[in-house]
Design a protein around this nucleic acid. Structure first.
Lengths: 361, 361
DNA sequence: TTGTACGCGTTATCAG
DNA sequence: CTGATAACGCGTACAA
């Protein structure tokens, strides 16, 4: 690994001049600068960011803390973070905590030792104190998709609005008895989605009935199980809103086994727009979260805060988007558009190349 | 950010002693060591890895280059890499190249500037020269799931064997006319899977017929389109082996639309075991790749090479595993086991908690 | 057992 | 326009 000293020697100048020439900072005779650059290139010189960071207290490295990158929600967020980071010259260190506080603590220690310039948190159960410690130490933090009672920037999606859109959609199709399968009552996302359900009913002048609300656990099996309870209700609901796609998937399977047609006999809407929801039969109407944008905005907030440590914290709330597919409306036109789509594609890739812009559209 | 100097001042000793006390290196009076540690803790001291790295030429940071973390294949690999890295005290910088060589070059420049101790490559079209440059610069490289004519460590899955298992499975069920939809002919994975198909036929004494082989592009649409050609063949094949799950998914949709039952009228096997294959109707028989293990082993190889730069390169080849589900065999028992599974689960999580060990099982 | 002093590679400051 | 020098935080010979 060559250093500016060796380059300086070869160029017959001082290290300081090499530094200036390479960084374009300060005055260097144009011709000399070119010569130095050429020499640096020929030596395959790469500046040492450790030495740099030691001096200017900037590492151009960020930390990204997720529970598990393997969980389908996070790759899109991570991609958003990483893209913005990269275009701004930052690298991103990935941390999988599994929601384990000790692991989280260990990762944070590593990040601090590496002197990262900031951290994006996307973990479900963050320890408020962990975030606070970071903040106290002067390390900027942005929370993505998490509400936490800490004074820092954050991005999240409006779960109330998402659920409101979903249920509003069903109600405007004429349904009047809409059952809901919620998530665990202690999670804010679940609470907010229930709230949206209530608001939609209210707005449409339909009384809220607690008996139509069943608590699931965000896993497929609970949807599968609770669907049977819904079918047995008297009078039977004509539509179901599941607080996430996994549970909706379970509902779908259960209904199929019971010979109940979707959407003809029972309409169904999920939440999250995981890839799965595009390939079920019928394809699932659902609420898409702007995952990529969440990551991207989180990273923008972070980078902006790094240069302005004292400005007021921003709380960005993104709007989710209802994606109407086949599980909620009887007539459909998607079939044609899908075929049209297929025509214009020609890319190949080892594991099925995809493109991020197609992620949430 | 406190330094050992400030700690030294408070403890009334020299910085060197603090360093020794904190690192447990060299002799320090036990009582003094404890006192120093206590002071360090109270000051929330974190060693500066930049200064350290500058000195010992080790950053304990690795680079992970993937085409796109959003592509369902890579999170599991990344998780494998990251887990092993973390347990060995390394951090991992994530790089998404989108298969774009210029982006790749830019990332590699960043990684070199950051003086990462090594790099794991998992990108589909790696530039051999990029890898070679790294190697020449003394940066250890491990290739995961990629064959490349470069002298370095690698891990990959045996695609020939996977295809061989898949087709062997169909043949032993009594099928004699098995069609195959391959991937792009220029990709080694596609070539190898075709080779496995041929070997299985050969072994079972069935002549290879080129007319039964159709070239897809690893995308769902090509499976959808080619399925029609297969149905029109005379005599019609009774089974299809698709070189990946996405194409198998397309086949499934097409067959359903044509009123051809799977597996009764036509058996189907895919490749990759993406999550999707678990929720289709019927669920897809497929070949599971040990993605997590690939990542984990890649990282182990890398770390081991970092300490032994001169040892012979290792080429690890992992065995894929056939996962028999409903799309290939008429009688099924999975239904029950699924219900049994459901009973013993109780975890919750904001976005549907999952666990990585369940990834490939 | 502890302290002193140097160097890792850069850049910023100050002379020249 | 260019060069010398100090400093960033740490670990480690070497001296005490």
């Amino acid at each position: 690994m060559p250093t500016i000293y060796e380059i300086a020697k070869l160029a017959g100048v001082s290290p300081a001049t090499v530094s200036r020439a390479l960084n374009g900072t300060g005055y260097v005779r144009a011709e000399l600068r070119e010569r130095i650059r050429a020499i640096a290139d020929s030596m395959d010189y790469h500046p040492n960011s450790l030495a740099r960071g030691l001096l200017n207290k900037r590492t151009y490295t960020l930390g990204l803390v997720v529970p598990d990158i393997t969980n389908p929600f996070f790759p899109a967020v991570a991609r958003g973070v990483e893209d913005v980071a990269h275009t701004n010259g930052y690298g991103v260190i990935l941390c999988n905590t599994d929601g384990n506080l000790q692991k989280e603590a260990k990762y944070l220690k590593m990040l601090r030792t590496k002197r990262v310039d900031g951290v994006v948190f996307t973990t479900s159960r963050v320890q408020a104190s962990h975030v606070q410690d970071l903040l106290n130490a002067g390390v900027p933090v942005v929370l993505a998709d998490r509400r936490l009672d800490v004074r820092c920037d954050s991005v999240s999606a409006d779960n109330v609005d998402g659920a409101y859109q979903a249920v509003g959609h069903l109600l405007s199709l004429g349904h009047t008895r809409v059952a809901m399968i919620t998530g665990p009552a202690n999670l804010t996302t679940a609470q907010e989605r229930l709230e949206g359900y209530k608001q939609a009913l209210c707005e449409h002048g339909i009384a809220f009935s607690p008996r139509l609300v069943l608590e699931g656990d965000f896993r497929q099996e609970s949807g599968y199980r609770l669907a049977r309870d819904i079918v047995r209700m008297d009078p039977r609901p004509t539509a179901v809103f599941a607080a996430n796609d996994l549970m909706a998937m379970g509902v779908l399977m259960s209904l199929e086994e019971q010979g109940i047609r979707v959407p003809e006999d029972m309409a169904l809407v999920g939440y999250d727009d995981v890839v799965l929801s595009r390939v079920t039969r019928p394809r699932l109407t659902t609420v898409a979260q702007p995952k990529y944008e969440m990551g991207a905005i989180a990273c923008e907030l972070l980078i902006s805060r790094i240069s302005h440590p004292e400005k007021e914290p921003e709380k960005v709330v993104l709007k989710p988007r209802l994606v109407v597919r086949e599980s909620s409306v009887v007539r459909e036109v998607e079939q044609m558009s899908r075929l049209a789509m297929a025509k214009k594609t020609g890319r190949t890739g080892a594991t099925g190349g995809n493109n991020r812009n197609g992620q949430d559209t």
